[in-house]
Design a protein around this nucleic acid. Structure first.
Lengths: 202, 202
DNA sequence: CACTTTACTTGACGTCGGTTCAACAACGGG
DNA sequence: CCCGTTGTTGAACCGACGTCAAGTAAAGTG
């Protein structure tokens, strides 16, 4: 009902701090409710500011959502940067561990991010697709660098599609895992790893 | 701008015919735009009826969307019913062919259906999840009936999650395939088949 | 051809959430 | 202590959802 901090002292934050705070609140709300069930007023209320301020920082509600998605995609890509020079099989396990760590600690952002898939308009979708493309590229590069897969990779037209599909696989598994973790992190990791190797294997 | 058929003759359809028509228009619009960019007035205009009539058949916009999703899920399940008594490997190829045929001929409905994943509220989501669960069950039953996979299936806790992930894989691949069919139907079919076998194989 | 039924239209209205904007107030420098 | 900068507010505007009562006309029925 009331603001986060009591209404007695109206805090005045710097532009960046306020933006950050609003995006964090947005990530939580967008992770729990579909896009159009999140009211801009609700975000402002939880953040302890007025509706107007939100529109001062973000032109429209869509832009606000896009900013939440973009912020989360950046965090995700930053946390799961590839480690070059390591065999793909091994690197995959490590990368998946990092990924699952990210999913676990930033569950809200992760869920909010993946809402952009089906709920977004052109703008949001573009941000989302760019992030997915970056992940795909990351995976393809890691695979191509490994002598086990690299050489045969370029000859197959379905590899790109396979990687995209695998990302959807991993996403679905992780979202379900967050819902109720009936499997251990290691089991999830191995399942996803097995899936990728199964698709790109001859 | 104007109605589908010229405005000179106002056609009077049966309840079922009209519902069907409206749902078809809805499927097309929801396949091309996110939920909140589809106006109820737009649907009515294209169908050549008044806004009021739409609210006569569907209480709210959400119910309308849910009806679109449900209709499409029924069609999908009906068209991809399992054929018992056939080995899983073989049945998988046939089922995927049927599935891809459905995806191709009902692209609008297919896209609209999968918007419910992230754009839906509780009601819509329930419809969507029920359809997914039915597909999962269908796959698990087919696998369990085959002596090659059946016996070992019950012992593994990750099978359900794997199947769910595979559905997401297939969905992502099909949606991308609809976008620009750079791969033939056979290639897509084989890719998806390989994916499932790769995940449930030991 | 009357008569009934019922799909369908019309248009005005209330509501609610997104969006705009002029004014306000908290901080920082002089 | 005053003043400019700028974070922030509150209220009004708008447009889409949803309601409703009264009426219109297309089909079936005798």
């Amino acid at each position: 009902m009331a603001a986060n901090q009591g209404e007695r002292t109206r805090r005045r934050l710097s532009t960046e701090e306020r933006k950050e705070q609003l995006l964090t609140v947005g990530a939580r709300l967008f992770s729990e409710n579909p896009y159009d069930e999140v009211w801009i007023e609700q975000v402002a209320e939880i953040a302890g500011v007025s509706r107007g301020l939100l529109y001062h920082y973000f032109p429209t509600k869509r832009d606000f959502f896009a900013a939440v998605v973009e912020r989360e995609s950046e965090r995700m890509l930053r946390m799961t940067a590839a480690v070059p020079g390591v065999p793909a099989r091994e690197q995959l396990a490590v990368a998946l561990d990092t990924y699952l760590e990210y999913v676990h600690t930033h569950a809200h952002g992760y869920r909010a991010f993946h809402r952009a898939d089906a709920a977004g308009d052109q703008t949001v979708r573009r941000v989302y697709q760019r992030a997915l493309a970056a992940q795909e590229r990351q995976i393809l590069v890691a695979l191509a660098a490994d002598p086990e897969f690299g050489p045969a990779l370029g000859e197959r037209a379905d590899v790109k599609l396979a990687v995209r599909g695998w990302l959807a696989f991993t996403t679905a598994v992780c979202l379900e895992w967050l819902r109720g973790p009936e499997l251990s992190r290691e089991q999830v990791r191995d399942l996803c790893a097995r899936a990728l190797l199964g698709v790109i294997a001859p």
